[in-house]
Amino acid sequence: MIGEEFVALSLTPMLIGMLAAIACALPGNFLLLRRQALIGDAISHVVLPGIVVAFLITGVVAAVPMMLGAAGAAIVAVVMIEAIRRLGRIEPGAAMGVTFTAMFAGGVLLLEQSDTSAVHLDVEHALFGNLESLIWLDATGWASLFDREALAYLPVELPRLLIVLTVVALFTWVFWRPLKISTFDESFAQSIGVRTGPLGFALVIVAALAAVAAFDAVGSIIVIAMFICPPAAARLMTNDLGTQVAWSVFFATLSAVIGYVLAGYGPLWLGADNAVSAAGMIAAVSGAILALTAIAGPHKSRSGAPAKG
């Protein structure tokens, strides 16, 4: 599998999968510790109506309007969840459930009603992504990595995800201390002058950014799985936040690579002749990693001082 064929057919999807996985896993660490793990689930559902509305307005499937539409939908969802929670005094989980199911249903109906047959936009694409189709046909081998002409034809998702990953990583790096403090002890963070409200909102926005970029490339299953599984597995490996983030990046990369290889080549080894969904397999591998750490992780149970009454 090393050679021309690999560079052209497998290198870019694998890289895109890795970048998407890492971009989601980074904010996922903080969301997990803040008990907001299901935000990723909600975001990946509400992104659909945003993208459909953006498509209906502009008439093209382009990155910028879709990003704007998705971001708009995410903001609408956050406002709606807050409104339902406050006005109806409904617990946040249920408010979230009402919002994202209704918005997803609206998105699906809009999509089915409008004429999107000419473009590659349908519900299944939104759910499973099209990782396998993000190939780099102009590559002729490893040398193409240094060939300017071939590089110009890289799938656009790759540089886009690279930019988003840089933004996410920068956010995590710059706000590391305030994020860490406000995640573990919000009132202490407030007392030393961290503005926890805007910081929490910024975290959700960064998560949404990662979700939208990843969603566009790989579908919503990977987004949800990568927000939760690698950070959760990492949490069972260590007590230190820095180490946890490092583990989660490692697990995310591992899931993407093993998942992609298993999906592409696994069926061939078993004698079948067609590959299975790479997105689904990556999610499955991340689940397997989580299962392993849940069985044998060094810090799987609560440790340290006993809980105070």
Partner: peptide, 16 residues
């Protein structure tokens, strides 16, 4: 979240 996404992913593998 973990069960939801992982099971759904496995299901998609079966469907494909």
């Amino acid at each position: 979240g973990a069960v939801l996404s992982v099971f759904f992913g496995i299901g998609i593998v079966f469907l494909t």
